[in-house]
Design a protein around this nucleic acid. Structure first.
Lengths: 341, 341
DNA sequence: GGTGACCTGATGCCCTTTCTTCATGATTTT
DNA sequence: AAAATCATGAAGAAAGGGCATCAGGTCACC
């Protein structure tokens, strides 16, 4: 299968008996051309349905007006929202977007970076995979002076701009809420401990406890590998804990949903026996029964801010010095945490 | 902010005192080069961290190894799954993917096509927006011989390959199921009537009714504009219908979820008063209370098939003659339709 | 002198941009 | 008043960007 022929400037030039440069000037509306010649050329270009070859243009000016985006997973609603925000605002400023997913694999992430760089994207927006525990590929980008920003899943040390949520703040909000609902024995279901968000959300959890004079209790911190099995295992463990906890804060909504589903199947009552809360405000969390208390993270907004800042840097509208943008989260209290004391 | 310098073949050539063509040959492992020279060049290229400039390459061979994808909405789980399937399998075959969303707007759709074509993508995968009611932009692609396939939201007349679900079959499955559950007075909540899927699913709905000797009753066909308000309006209308229907089949899950949520707030019991079913098998439909009977459409699979066929055509592995791939759907019976007669 | 191994030069892909050229009419000079 | 000079407007030629490839070219060796 072959692509049909594309009209080039050369062909227009031939047809009109002028040089290619004249065509170029006419199409760029250069003042140093006779208006009449210009008119004729523009007309002919339209008639022949001329479309400039962005490839050649890019090669010439060595800018592709294309951004690369790497997310762990496109099918996650949160990341899809981020992409949507990036898309819309990149387009608005004349940029295209190439999207890759790392599928939570560091090797895939490295491969993605490689292809995007080879495709000459002008800059990258990256959200790290769960597996990413070394950062040479990022430092290489940095040393090759390829602009990029990190969002949501970031590596703190590297001196580039980052856009994150106030994870600690959000966890504080939700834990504080559970405390207000009367819980005093709150489990934190964390993801793998080396994850940035695992750490940050634990911080907020502990801070809220501390304000209520409750000391950290390692027994109350459960680690899940974030698979469905892992989540259910944690749900089982919690049921067997002694003394029985009264509240559970899950690092992300899907964990909470798995726990809830499992408990429901075992006849455990939420919120009566356990107040339950998640984090992220996935669409599912609003429709489960009971609706899940969570913390909303506006993904679209995050994408928008990340890309706007990046393009500002690219276009020289913002300083190249790395900045850190921290977005606030909002507590979304729902029925799953309305514990009757 | 500027991009750092990229090593070119020219530079390697200079450093080693050979010609650019030699470098090119060495890197392509051409047999007409002395192995020793080849070794030296490859080594130097690695050392200097040479990355071929895909842009120049593309300009040369006039293939970008990039595909353009246009979907109505990235944040929809179904389309995200399609993209995921497209991504994975395109990458597997050495292609990159540029993704755009039309946001259900035909103007945006046309604009997307334009940018992608200007960016010299080798081919396109398109799922039409809801607004798309004329098809000149597609015929133009066709006449310009730019390969493309349509998936899910297709235009039947145009002679290009299409990948769709057996929408009529799925609707038949679900309606048949409702009939088996004892419903005899089944409402079909459709989207706008000119939508391809509105029509197709209605076909299946009517066929199932027909098999049970039930005649089409226009009163039982409700149209929603698919907004939340529209869906709720329909939910209200159904409550006031006389005689009272016993089953409701919604064209897509979100409609069913909105209806369900509204009814629950009004104390209407599902499935006792109404058996309810949707279509698509969104993640939410599994977790609502009661879980929603629906029809599963494997989006990942659809994306995979669409891109595989397209690349087969592109690579000459498949004939250019348009084909139509129809994927079967699977009924997912859940509690929302377990009507006790 | 022919052959084959190995390598180079030039050209093209398409567009932009700088440098040049050419013509025209105005201004200055003789 | 005629010739020389200049300014200006309009358009062409050519280079450059990185890569691939066709057509040569060089050299050693049979």
């Amino acid at each position: 299968m072959k692509k049909g022929h594309q009209v080039t400037m050369k062909e227009i030039a031939k047809k009109l008996g002028v040089s290619v440069s004249t065509i170029s000037r006419a199409l760029k509306d250069s003042p140093e051309l006779h208006p009449e010649t210009k008119r004729k050329i523009v007309e002919m270009a339209k008639e022949m349905n001329y479309q400039p070859n962005l490839l050649a243009q890019s090669l010439r000016i060595s800018r592709t007006k294309t951004l690369g985006v790497i997310v762990p997973e496109i099918t996650s609603h949160f990341f899809a929202s981020c992409i949507s925000g990036i898309q819309d605002h990149a387009n608005k400023r004349g940029y295209n977007v190439m999207i890759c997913q790392s599928n939570e694999s560091i090797d895939q992430e490295i491969a993605n970076i490689k292809t995007l760089v080879a495709s000459q994207v002008d800059a990258l927006l990256i959200s790290l995979s769960r597996e990413t525990n070394h950062y040479e590929h990022l430092y290489e980008l940095y040393s090759r002076e390829i602009p990029f920003v990190l969002f949501d899943r970031v590596h703190e040390e590297i001196p580039v701009s980052k856009v994150t949520f106030n994870d600690a703040g959000g966890a504080y909000q939700v834990t504080h809420h559970l405390l207000e609902m009367g819980c005093r024995n709150i489990v934190y279901v964390s993801g793998p401990e080396d994850l940035y968000i695992s750490k940050k959300r634990k911080e907020g959890y502990l801070k809220a406890l501390d304000e209520y004079g409750i000391k950290e209790n390692p027994e109350l911190i459960k680690i899940s590998d974030l698979t469905e099995e892992g989540n259910i295992r944690v749900a089982q463990e919690i049921l067997m804990m002694e003394p029985k906890p009264d509240g559970v804060f899950c690092m992300i909504d899907p964990v909470a949903v798995d726990v809830l589903t499992y408990w429901k199947s075992k006849g455990v009552k939420v919120p009566e026996e356990f107040a339950l809360a998640g984090f992220t405000n996935n669409p599912t969390s609003a429709v489960v029964e009971p609706p899940l208390t969570t913390v909303s993270q506006p993904g679209y907004e995050m994408g928008k801010l990340a890309v706007s800042h990046l393009l500002d840097q690219l276009d020289g509208l913002a300083s190249d010095d790395p900045i850190s943008i921290v977005l606030d989260t909002t507590l979304v209290p729902r029925k799953s945490s309305q514990k009757t004391i």
